[in-house]
Design a protein around this nucleic acid. Structure first.
Lengths: 223, 223
DNA sequence: CACCAACCTTACAGTTCCGTAAGGTAGAAC
DNA sequence: GTTCTACCTTACGGAACTGTAAGGTTGGTG
């Protein structure tokens, strides 16, 4: 899933440099140079992963844009990027709902690192589903989807698979499974083997494999 | 619920200034001056709301502390607070999993604003449980607790109660229940009445009531 | 090879869950 | 009051879930 960034910046030179830099690391960067236009756009599109916001804009100030955005959407991370370096500006920006504040001039490396830090949050944000091949897991609703159809599981198998997909790609040992998936539920050792067996049956028709790592435990992966 | 901050900083003067400043805005600030001790503490306590981390520490470097923390817990926000201002240090800190990086010397006002920005995230984050009297619901783990003991429910009752506590205090009509709790699961009308009955039995010994609103639906409330 | 431990597979029985059916109760309208 | 409808309660059989047991496989080790 390509990440979608919005850059609100009126300086054409800086904007093109940033667009170029960020496009390499991430995916799509849209750019808007005008405050009023930014307001319009944000009232339609709610699905940006990150907004980079300059404060000195034609038509509307960046702070106005931020305030309007936050009145509707307090989710999307905003990084303010501006020549205004005074402490009071920073405090104001952050308190209006920005997540970070970087004063110009700045090093591109630092901007990239801060962007990564903000986007990283999304990763372990439970509203983003975990994906593994054709299997996906909505952590919010605790709901699996396989090949685009709902996959409903009995409680025990559900917990087991949820734990495994959480550590997708790396082996999870039985002790950890007992601890995290079945905390205090007196599940025997052999019982897990049976759950695994049943899960394998269900996943057979997909591209997801539940491999056993002898002596360690189990590991969920794409074949 | 008082917020709990951890300050890892060896300079006593700065530490006491920060403790004083932050205690006013928030609640409890614990302070550790030593890198090794920080590692120990963090392997026990996982429930800090924010960690302020200096990089130059006796015994273990702040980056080591950060790395060890992130190998177990990628949730707790970390703000690095250090005299090392070089860009490469910043990039390194942020890429190791820090959420923000503030170079000394800094203005207290800016620190406070950045701390607020980091803590603000927590607010509308589903890791905060829903509470209703002695019943609480951990949205992350989809897990109920009643009178401080785990309340495990069969799937159907679980979904019903989860939906009701989401709208705690206001009536939820059956159509909505069918739609949100049992989406596309062909649950009869009378079946819901039976679930309600069974849930009432379980909640009987608590201060939570599942009231019926005649002609509308059901409503969860504290008696 | 022989042996052992870890793991797989299948079957089965105990338990829990589920939802319909059948009869009872309560509130509202007339 | 009667009547109607919404809701409650209980019981029961079928379905699904769960975990042990028993025997089969596999991979590693001497």
């Amino acid at each position: 899933m390509p990440l979608k960034l919005l850059l609100i910046e009126d300086d054409p030179l800086l904007a093109s440099t940033l667009t170029e830099t960020l496009t390499v690391e991430n995916q799509r960067v849209e750019r808007i140079a005008d405050g009023g236009e930014a307001l319009d756009r944000l009232s339609f599109d709610h699905d940006y992963d990150l907004i980079l916001l300059d404060l000195n804009l034609p038509n509307r100030s960046g702070l106005e844009v931020l305030e309007a955005l936050r009145s509707r959407d307090r989710q999307t991370p905003v990084l303010i990027l501006t020549a205004r370096a005074a402490i009071e500006d920073r405090v104001k920006g952050l308190d209006l709902g920005a997540d970070d504040y970087l004063a110009k001039p700045f090093a591109l490396d630092e901007l990239e690192a801060r962007v990564r830090a903000l986007l990283r949050r999304r990763q372990n944000d439970p509203s983003e589903p975990l994906m593994l091949g054709s299997l996906s897991f909505d952590r919010q609703r605790q709901h699996f989807t396989l090949n685009d159809t709902a996959l409903s599981l009995p409680p025990r198998e559900h917990r087991l698979l949820a734990c495994l997909i959480h550590y997708a790609g790396e082996p999870v040992d039985k002790a950890r499974l007992l601890d995290e998936a079945f905390a205090g539920e007196a599940v025997g050792d052999n019982a897990i083997e049976v759950y695994v067996h049943r899960l394998r049956r269900r996943l057979a028709a997909s591209d997801v494999r539940l491999r056993t790592v002898r002596g360690i435990g189990y590991l969920l992966e794409v074949e």
